[in-house]
């Protein structure tokens, strides 16, 4: 199909979808109204479980099984990306040479912000039940913070500080801990993912029962998962396919190509 024909088909379809949206929108409750039935049920349920952050209560207590599925999707995606990005048979792994330069200011900012970002990430994970935040958000901050090392221009430092096997294990442990808390709920209270831990004091760090435990599990899983994911993309960037090299004689397309360190075995 030619580009213009495809565009015409899309515009006809989009016009129909837009018309149906318009019909639906004018029959929906007006924006900003005060009728929210789910809100009226979720807020008392959250308060009765000593959870100050109602969103965290919905995610990790009232609809925790949904979050288990969400977390499993993340694990599956990381596995899928790792499989897709593994080095192929004909590819050689190249060690990046220290080429290009990083501004001193960038390096300084990176090294100064590394501990700060990791602390903020931990803070966001730990306070998920009392303030906005939680395992997903905190985990992403932790993983991003680690990659400040890459921004400072030192892939080797990142490589040393990032034992991938450990992060692979961390991801699995985080995902398993979530399911483990759920099974503990069956054993103790008879319900999967039941909130079995004593509630604590409303609005304090120790509150909300299982919510902070599940937040920690998710934080571990998301943080490790994102690190593994980014690692595979970075690795892909420094791996140059042998075919591409043959196609373009007299130089490689990547600026950081360095000495060849041997053919990567298929894993």
């Amino acid at each position: 199909m030619s580009r213009s024909a495809r565009l015409v088909v899309f515009l006809i379809g989009a016009g129909c979808v837009a018309a149906m949206f318009a019909v639906a929108f004018f029959k929906m409750p007006a924006f900003g109204g005060s009728m929210h039935l789910y809100r009226d049920l979720a807020v008392p349920a959250s308060v009765s479980h000593y959870t100050a952050n109602v969103v965290a209560s919905v995610n990790f207590d009232q609809r925790a099984i949904d979050t288990l599925g969400e977390e499993t999707i993340l694990v599956a995606s990381v596995i899928g990306a790792a499989v897709l990005l593994r080095p192929a048979e004909e590819e050689a792994e190249m060690r990046p040479k220290a080429v290009g330069r990083t501004l001193e200011a960038t390096k300084l900012a990176g090294y100064l912000l590394l501990p700060v970002t990791l602390l903020i990430g931990l803070d966001v994970v730990l306070h998920g039940q009392v303030t906005p935040g939680g395992g997903f958000q905190g985990g992403v901050i932790l993983a991003t913070g680690l990659h400040l090392l890459y921004v400072t221009g030192s892939y080797r430092a990142l490589d040393r500080l990032r034992p991938l096997e450990l992060f692979d294990t961390g991801e699995a442990v985080g995902a398993a801990a979530f399911a483990g808390v759920g099974i503990a709920g069956i054993v103790v209270a008879g319900n999967f993912l039941a909130n079995i831990v004593p509630g604590g004091t409303f609005g304090q760090l120790l509150s909300a029962g299982t919510v902070p435990i599940l937040n920690g599990a998710v934080g571990l899983e998301v943080g490790c998962g994102i690190v593994v994911l980014v690692a595979h993309f970075l690795q892909q960037d420094i791996i140059i396919s042998a075919q591409a090299e043959q196609a373009k004689p007299g130089g490689s397309s990547e600026p950081q190509a360095g000495e060849r360190v041997g053919t990567a075995e298929r894993s």
């Binding site: 789910y38 009226d40 807020v43 100050a52 969103v55 009392v130 609005g203």
Partner: peptide, 16 residues
């Protein structure tokens, strides 16, 4: 929909 010392639990919040 996040309560604390300044915001006591009430139902006048957006849908969590």
């Amino acid at each position: 929909p996040v309560f604390g010392s300044t915001t006591k639990p009430n139902k006048h919040v957006v849908d969590p």
